[in-house]
Design a protein around this nucleic acid. Structure first.
Length: 251
DNA sequence: CGTATCCTGACC
DNA sequence: GGTCAGGATACG
């Protein structure tokens, strides 16, 4: 999002296009054409959502989902093999929505229309503390790990960092969300802040092989817990893999 | 609440 | 060929 911001803020769109059926459904040519000659006033992030605010009050909403990323290129460059949509600016900059699985969201919202779903507190907000967690988790019946990944509970936390935060705070991913004690929620809130700090996470994407194994539990099934040596386990929760240490993460 | 679904690619 | 993948949503 920061790279996007640097590349497009204050610039004017020359052309835009989706080039994959899944993207075209949400961003048809008629919509793409409406972006022409619009200036991008600002780029904003909310949770995992990116909002490009245009000079006519409309908002272009982008969400990478699983695999998405922005490629910043030039209009002279050939399109990347996995580019599913792109926006070209009048200065020759092109931003490509690179998304092999084509699961990303790209949608233009006219002025006045809400581009965002309901979202909880930002994962990196200093106001995210134990009392806040207590109140948003109070009426959840299920386990904590899926609750942490619910964007209405916390905006911006996903599968990796939910697992990392639970490992750091020594809380079982299966712990019932509503019945976690305040002291443990305090550890959890601190852990969320910690694991998201840039100095505590890999500088690249986790699939960039050189950055794997940089997590404490995520994707470490069968390896030794870095705290107690116990073998890291993988379970399924809400259809997603959860990695955790069965010994030092307690319910 | 969990599950199926949207997609394609990497890896076994 | 099967399994898994950083996410969200519609549905039961």
């Amino acid at each position: 999002m920061r790279r996007l911001k640097r590349a497009v803020e204050g610039k004017t769109i020359a052309n835009a296009k989706a080039i994959h059926p899944a993207l075209l459904r949400q961003f048809p040519d008629a919509t793409a054409r409406r972006l022409r000659q619009r200036t991008i006033d600002s780029v904003e992030r909310r949770g995992k959502h990116q909002l490009l605010h245009l000079d006519n009050g409309a908002t272009l909403h982008a969400h990478f989902r699983m695999n998405g990323d922005w490629l910043i290129t030039s209009t002279e460059d050939p399109l990347d093999r996995f580019t599913r949509a792109f926006i070209e600016l009048t200065d020759g900059t092109r931003i490509e929505l690179q998304d092999s699985r084509a699961l990303a969201a790209l949608k233009l919202h006219p002025k006045g229309e809400d581009a965002l779903p309901a979202l909880g507190i930002e994962a990196n907000d200093a106001m995210l503390d134990a009392p806040h967690l207590k109140s948003v988790l109070a009426k959840r019946r299920g386990p904590i790990k899926p609750a942490l990944m619910d964007q209405k509970v916390i905006a911006g936390l996903g599968n990796i960092y939910a697992a990392e935060a639970l490992w750091r705070s020594m809380i079982s991913p299966r712990a019932v969300a509503s019945s976690i004690s305040l002291p443990r929620l305090e550890r959890l809130a601190d852990a969320i802040g910690f694991v998201l700090k840039s100095k505590n996470r890999p500088p690249g994407r986790y699939t960039d092989n050189e950055f794997r194994g940089r997590f404490q539990v995520y994707d470490r099934e069968g390896e030794a817990c870095r705290r107690c040596g116990t073998t890291i386990k993988r379970i399924q929760q809400a259809g997603r893999s959860t990695y955790f240490c069965p010994k030092c993460q307690r319910s």
